[in-house]
Design a protein around this nucleic acid. Structure first.
Lengths: 132, 132
DNA sequence: AACGATAACGATAATGATTATCGTTTACAT
DNA sequence: ATGTAAACGATAATCATTATCGTTATCGTT
């Protein structure tokens, strides 16, 4: 799983993102790593996240309540965003419709790279909680 | 077009948003109004935007490069976002698929309110520019 | 018209996320 | 061991947004 020439911190950040489904923010990553690396800097996390995005290792899936969220699964897939707890959940079972991109390009004259779909609402856990 | 009990500034902000297709940010609205109202405050724009969203008169369509963008067309429709010039363009000809919301709710157990679709790429104008 | 209550405002400070800076440390090749 | 470049930690700076607070405008009532 380790990558070419990654420093210890960089590797730790990357493998943490790879091995979580939480679509983390930089702050979240920082909080997770503070235990194992007590002197890690938040700036280091931001710096490495930006580099991962730059290199296509991860993608930014936009911002939830002002905080940028990342995904190590770079395939095009939809997400569910819980407006209550800010959870971002994969909906990778939904097929990606590339023909839709072509159709929009044809209809509008814009050059379409891709599209993203975000479902909003209350996640299952939050729905259950509200019944207690 | 004027609304119930709107102050002059509030009315100006609201009708500006209504009469543009740019999906403006708070800063953009502020810049537009500075000529006519030289002493208008950016805080006033933010305050009123928040109130319009609160009351359902406009919606936030998320953030583009860190700046929140608004839409006075509160109907559910897709948008094209130009990654070069930050233009946000309506794709209101695309039908909204409410059954998709039901299907996701059924498949995941989340309570789905709605979904939003963002196409990314280069808008027609930017494509043309790059050929000059 | 004057009064008082309330809403809205302008100016500005505060916040929070992100980015930049800069001196130091690490890793690694010579 | 030394030199070089990459990476780091600490911290300052930036940028969008939100909060504060004293002042001003609005409006209904007298």
């Amino acid at each position: 799983m380790a990558r070419k020439n990654f420093s210890e911190k960089r590797e730790a950040i990357y493998s943490l993102i790879r091995n979580t489904k939480t679509h983390p923010s930089a702050e979240w990553v920082y909080q997770q790593l503070k235990d194992k690396y007590p002197n890690i800097s938040l700036g280091t996390v931001y710096r490495n996240m930006a580099m991962f995005v730059e290199q296509g290792l991860i993608v930014s899936i936009g911002t939830v309540n002002g905080r940028e969220r990342f995904d190590a699964d770079t395939s095009l897939h939809a997400h569910f965003i819980c407006d209550e707890c800010e959870a971002v959940i994969d909906l990778d079972y939904l097929p990606y419709d590339r023909e839709l991109d072509d159709s929009v390009a044809l209809n509008t004259g814009h050059s379409v790279k891709n599209h993203s779909v975000f479902f909003h609402g209350k996640c299952r856990k939050c729905v259950e909680k509200s019944f207690i």
